[in-house]
Design a protein around this nucleic acid. Structure first.
Length: 128
RNA sequence: UUACCGGGUGGCGCGAUCGCGCGGUAUGGCGCCGAAAGGUAUUACCGUGAGGAAAGUCCGGGCUUCAUAGGGGAGGAUAACGGAUAACGUCCGCCGGGGGCGACCCCAGGGAAAGUGCAACAGAGAUAUACCGCCGCCUUCGGGCGGUAAGGGUGGAAAGGCGAGGUAAGAGCUCACCGAAACCCGCGGUAACGCGGGCUUCCUGUAAACCCUAUCCGAAGCAACGCCUUCGGGAGAGCGGAGCGAUCCGCUACGGUUCCCGCCGGAAUCCCGAUGGCGGCAGAGGGCGCAAGCCCUCAAGCCGUUUGGUAACAAACGGCGCAGAUAGAUGACCGCGGCGCUGCAAGGCGCACAGAACCCGGCUUAUAAACCCGGUAACGAC
RNA sequence: GGCCCGUUGGUCAAGAGGCUAAGACAUCGCCCUCUCACGGCGAAAACAUGGGUUCGAUUCCCGUACGGGUCA
């Protein structure tokens, strides 16, 4: 399951400044409606609306190995959340790792991420 | 057995399920994003996918650009000698010095006898000196003048050490022995150097102070650079000569491998800047094929064997010939096994340091547990 | 990814081989004042780290750690 990544710095800044925020013990999630969603939907070969997602792991977490591993675990948790639940699309999602995330297994992050998505109103009513 | 010394291997393994990057084959779309260049799916299968340090960026090389011969200066690096290497500040051997009972380890290890500078405090005096002392002379008996580096004390360093002669007292002033340094001769060694002899001299330390000597070095770096795209800006100058003229020639401003000399360019239309993109970036050559691709050969490199060499290394033969991302691909989870710690046991906990970014050769630093080889000392046994 | 710098009290900083390692602000104590401020006097407090050169290193050389700048 692929997802579109955020790489521009200004989108991160917007998400931090204007987006809705929910913080769990090991993650901080920022959500902002994606103004470019319509344009991206047209660009997509299969005409699917997608969420754009950005991962932030600061140097405070550790070296390159630790940070890569943390990003992989968060990505795995995100993948499982969106396959097990129906998630509304057309948003910018920035997930920042807090210091505890390094030691977690991906099983433990799934409920956290799901809770955050629920509180932010990302989950639609119908189950998949 | 205990305590060490030197070198090397290695960097947990296997199997399910889900998932990722790249390449390929099929499937599939001809749409969409973008100003353009350019980019792009879905699904299935196959192949492939991080390190010994990928790190620090401390050296060396390839590669690329700077339109350009050469010489000099400045600046930088290195420093016994011989070799290895594409090259190195690396590696090997050897010499000298220092440390260790020893295996062995450490050393920016040229020149202080070319010149300059510096040596605080202490001390009389730091490259030159007379404070105390010793000796001679004078004396108003307080001391003064002269000689003296043997003795005292200071210091990291005080005119080589010690004995005899010598002297008023002393002094390499003279002599014997010892020590050090330069030079010459002989022997050994490719050489640094070592040993022996001769002669001369007795000279503080510091060059990781300036400096001198020898050798080497152009500068920048893949964010280099090349091409494409769209846009913006600038320069196409002056003088003299030839020619009816287009134009040509010379000089100058100016520009350039950054300073100087010299040389080149002095307008081929060229230069500068911005925007985004592709290449550089995954070796080279050949064959087949419309193409995608497939096959063959060879290099760099890696592994093994043999030969040469004390060794670094070289040569021959055989095999392999291997990641290419762009918010940055190897993960998650489960089971079985391995090793270590803990525990009577069941079990529990842990398995390091750490992530390629143009590519190589080194150095330095980080690194859990385990294994292998060679050697030393002490003790014990035979 | 490349290149280039820096590190001295709590903070800003001078010192560039030897002296008690300046100075300012901040802190603390005393004086001044009815009290506070200002002012005066005094105190405490530092050379990032491991080696090397040197008689002697904060300074010179090498390594390490940390921090910063710059190039699209």
């Amino acid at each position: 399951m692929k997802f579109k990544a955020i790489c521009e710095n200004h989108l991160f800044s917007k998400a931090y400044a204007k987006g809705k925020r929910f913080v769990t013990p090991s993650l901080a999630v920022y959500l902002l409606p994606d103004y470019a969603a319509d344009r991206l939907q047209k660009a997509h070969p299969l005409k699917i609306r997608v969420n754009r997602i950005g991962l932030t792991v600061s140097k405070k977490i550790g070296g390159a190995v630790e940070r890569n591993r943390t990003k992989r675990i968060i990505r795995e948790a995100y993948r499982r959340v969106i396959t097990e639940n129906a998630v509304r699309v057309g948003y910018l999602i920035v997930i920042a790792a807090r210091e505890r995330a390094t030691k977690k297994k991906s099983d433990e992050l799934v409920p956290e991420l799901k809770l955050a998505f629920e509180k932010l109103g990302l989950l639609s009513q119908g189950t998949k």
